[in-house]
Amino acid sequence: MINLFRFLLRNSSFFLFIVFEIIALYLVVNYNQSQRKTFLDASSNITATILEKNDQLHDYFNLQEINRNLNQENAFLLEKIISQSALTSTADKPSFKFYNAKVISNQIDGRYNRYVINQGRGAHVKPGMGILSGTFPAGIIYQATENYASVISLLNINLNISARIKNKGYFGLMRWRPPNPQQSVLFDVPAYADVLPGDTVVTSGHSHVFPAQMPLGIVSSVVTPKGSNSHEIAVNLFVNLGRLEYVQVIENVHRTELDSLKRNDER
């Protein structure tokens, strides 16, 4: 303590200088118009920069929350769009419901690819419902447990999607051809159909899993095998299954009704 006092006393002029200089500069920036303005400009610049950085950091840590919110919003908007436009296959009634989900494991390198989402029966997710990534179909639910569901990926050679050439009306079945995860093949389009590379392929809505007119991909090449009377159309998929993360589960509320009608037909 005594040493501290000695130290202060020995350097008294320096400490006095510091104290008086601070007082004087305080007076300068508080009681002189132009200096005050400069000081406030500079200090608010600095604080604004700090606040902005802080905000960016905050945003970064909140990304997950933001993603979840956006996903919910997307589901809500999709429901609105699809129920209001003529996209619905059962022309009059709005018949699709959406649930959010996140992909928790994914696979694209096999021939029978599946992935798992974090919603199950507890969230009304049932086998047979479709999966959308944005507005692009990405799979169909195969099994559902209480909290999870297993999805047959679009990249599974057992999955056939009923598809249609947009604006031309021809329809067929779309099935993946390994190993390219960006390309599927549309079968059963009649050979007389004037399909050209660049045409858009959309869902037909015939399967009652997806609404009609959901975009699937773009025609990249059209081949007609010898002796066949239908095209084999290579389709570049819109959906990127290798980067699938947030998805919507789509439910056709009239599905059971429609299916029972079909069963009655077959009888």
Binding site: S12, S13, L16, F17, F20, E21, I23, A24, L25, Y26, L27, V28, V29, N30, Y31, N32, Q35
Partner: peptide, 29 residues
């Protein structure tokens, strides 16, 4: 220390007459 004190008081005195609180004082300190 006395010189620094004089500098502060003298500077403040000048500042009072020029209506520029602290400007002369900070330099003179």
């Amino acid at each position: 220390a006395v010189v620094v004190l004089f500098g502060f008081l003298g500077g403040l005195g000048v500042d009072i007459f020029y209506n520029s609180p602290g400007v002369h004082a900070s330099a003179l300190v």
